[in-house]
Amino acid sequence: MSTVIDLERGVREVLEKRAKRNFTQSVELMINLKDVDVSKPEKRFSEMIELPHGLGSAAKRIAVVATGELALRASRSQHVDRVFERHEIEGLVGNKKAAKRVVREFDHFLIEPQLVPLAARALGAALGGVGKTPIPIPANVDIDEFAARYKRTIVARVRKVPQVMCIVGTEEMSADQILDNARAVVERVVSRLENGWANVKSIVLKLSMSPPVKIKPEKKR
C-alpha cells in the first residue's frame, strides 16, 4: 500500500481562488505533522532545500561576509544584496541590537572561511535565535553562482510545533513551477520523518491573502 497526495489539485485550487491584490502574493506551504514529539531534540530538524524554479520576486536576500578580491567579486554579483567587510562585522561584536537588525534583514549569510570565527562572535547568537545558519563559502567558488543557488534555497524546519512552513513560489509563477517546488519540499521533509508519510497529517497551500486549501494523504493499493 502506498501513500499519494494530490498536490497538483491543491496548486490549481489555490490559483483559481486567488483574489486580485495590489502586490504579488507568495505561495505558502504548510506540512502538518502527527506523532512527532518536538520536545525531543532528535525529532526537530532544519533542511536547506534548493527549489528547482526558485522563488520569483520572493527570492531570498543574500548577505556576503568577505574581504579583498572575494568581497569585490561579490559586490558585482546581481544575486548578492549586501557585502559586509571585516570592519563592519567587527563593529557588530557586542552590539546585540544591531546584530539582530542585520540578521532580520537577510535570509542567508555566506561567509568567507577566515571570517567565520569573527562572524560567529558578532552574529552567532542572533542567527541562532531565528534558526539561521551561517554558510561558509568554499574555496575557489564562483560567488555569483553560489549566491544564485541560495537565492532559490528555502529552509524547512521543525522546531517548537509539529509543522513545517515555507514559501514555494509566487502567484506570478506557472502552476507547474509551483508544483515542482512544492514537491521538492514535501519529498525532502517526508524523507526526514521517522515514519515517512505516516507522520504527515495534512498539507495546506495558500496565497498570502487567500483561503487555504487542505490536502490529506491517501492510502492506495
Rank of each mutant, 00 (worst) to 15 (best):
L118Q: 13
D35S: 14
K40I: 09
T3V: 12
A139G: 12
L92I: 04
M30R: 09
L72R: 15
P138D: 07
V164A: 09
L193F: 03
E218F: 01
G131P: 14
G129C: 07
D35L: 05
T67K: 13
E218D: 07
T67N: 14
V93E: 02
G54H: 13
L70T: 11
P52C: 04
V102F: 00
S210Q: 03
G91K: 11
G68C: 11
N140Y: 10
G196L: 00
L127G: 14
V164F: 04
R18P: 00
S75H: 11
R86T: 11
R73Y: 15
E218K: 14
R159L: 03
G131M: 15
Q114I: 15
E187L: 10
R86G: 08
Q78E: 14
R101P: 00
L72N: 12
G196P: 08
L115P: 12
A63D: 04
T67H: 02
S57C: 06
N22G: 02
E50I: 04
G169Q: 06
P211C: 02
R82M: 07
I178Q: 05
G131Q: 10
S210A: 08
W197Y: 07
I31H: 03
R152V: 03
L55R: 09
I135N: 15
V130W: 15
E187R: 15
D37Q: 02
A98L: 04
K43R: 15
E13A: 12
K160H: 13
V155A: 14
R44M: 03
I143R: 07
V65C: 08
F146Q: 10
K214P: 06
K132L: 13
R121C: 06
S2Q: 08
L127F: 12
G94F: 02
S57D: 11
P134Y: 11
G128S: 07
G54N: 06
S26K: 14
Q25A: 00
V36R: 05
S75P: 09
D176A: 13
V155R: 13
L29T: 01
I111L: 06
K206L: 04
L193Q: 01
V11R: 10
Q177M: 12
K214S: 08
V189I: 03
M209R: 14
G68R: 12
K43Q: 14
R188H: 06
V93Q: 03
K20T: 08
R21C: 00
V158T: 01
S191V: 10
A148P: 02
S77K: 11
L207I: 07
